[in-house]
Design a binder for these strands. Sequence first.
DNA 1: GCAAAAGTGTTGAACTTACACCCATGT
DNA 2: ACATGGGTGTAAGTTCAACACTTTTGC
Lengths: 237, 237
Amino acid sequence: MTREIHLTMVEFYSRQKRFLLALDVIIFGFDEEGLKLLLIKRGFEPCKGQWSLMGGFLEENEDMEQAADRVLHKLTGLSDLYLEQLHLYSKPHRDSDGRVISMAYYALMKTDHQDSEQLEKHNAQWFKIDEIPELVFDHREMVNHALARLRRKCRTQPIGFELLPDKFTIPQLQKLYEAILGVELDKRNFRKKILSMELLLKLEEKDKSSSRKGAFLYQFDKEKYDRLLGEGFNFAV
Amino acid sequence: MTREIHLTMVEFYSRQKRFLLALDVIIFGFDEEGLKLLLIKRGFEPCKGQWSLMGGFLEENEDMEQAADRVLHKLTGLSDLYLEQLHLYSKPHRDSDGRVISMAYYALMKTDHQDSEQLEKHNAQWFKIDEIPELVFDHREMVNHALARLRRKCRTQPIGFELLPDKFTIPQLQKLYEAILGVELDKRNFRKKILSMELLLKLEEKDKSSSRKGAFLYQFDKEKYDRLLGEGFNFAV
DNA sequence: GCAAAAGTGTTGAACTTACACCCATGT
DNA sequence: ACATGGGTGTAAGTTCAACACTTTTGC
């Protein structure tokens, strides 16, 4: 701030060190078995052959969100997944060698939209949340951080629906919350609370895949939620 | 992922574009007048003479948190302020010219610890939260984001105390929450709720600066809070 | 003695929690 | 007819919101 005052911006900027900027994505999914994490077996150095999060480097004409979308699309073939910034990991030696600074994102993916061929191409595999293998670098820390965020956030924002098919049943929704939060919920109280917000559209159809009686399918009414948000409404599970 | 497989890590990294990495800090303070923001009048290019957040570039042997501490210390002369990552701003043209990617942090500062000389040296000034001047680049967006985060977070974590003197009165604490949340609170209900958590140590002393009767001073019991945290306790205002 | 802020309790409403039985269906 | 998961209501406990008067003291 002393000598720099007299430099032009270009001169000043050129003295600053530049960094490799990457991103890693914690990708959550949900199915009958519970909450899952999508990991890749690295087919490239560094740490080739080990499990890690999907990631990539920031490129010149995109912002981090676009880079994260690009990386997610490359892995899954899908666009417009729920995606949220988590934390910047910047310790000088977090990466094995040659400093890389990484922005961690977490994504929520509807596993019924998945393209299994695409995933195989990248040696990607789903892991149950309590059976995560050893991960490279600080990826395990990122996963823990993402899980904590997901647990907190799913209680006050309707992000859980990003993990379910567009049409889902109430028992399915309950199992999702139980899987994320790691607790059992009372089905009467759960149903009462979730329906009392009047954000679910009940369909005529039933899903019979998990019982003889069948359970009614519902859809999340995103338009209504967005409208209510403006009026100070708070989602709560 | 196709040709890169056969490159060594160093070769691969060297093809990647590198970026200027900076940080900006939204610094909150609180005094009799309400919630405040600390801004600097830029004495350097770009945008010399305009109001902006305090910021700086990441250096080679530090992580972002250390850089943020350094920048804060440089401005205020203080260390160990409450500091939290907010959001990475990475749009290709967010900065006036020459791409800079910036990690935004927000900090909470006890204004009674401030060193006014130090602040003057940097042309820094406190602004009431609803009288913020025009800011450079996307700094206004950062401030809005920080305010939203502070409003949400102060309700479920005891971060408000970072803005008060070590010894404070209940009416002072209430005014703090009213200033942050932008609402009026009932003093009986407020006192009941905050004291019911049993996290405040009542001192013998009174503060008589704002009434003839004087109000008892309290201290936040951080040790007890940390202990309770482990047992699943939730702070709530 | 009065102005100004500190301090104090109660009641009704809303919400949360705990809990047990019937329903619809495929086999 | 029975096994399986879907669906429903109520009562007790807890928490929240609204509300008005007394206390202390410096002037």
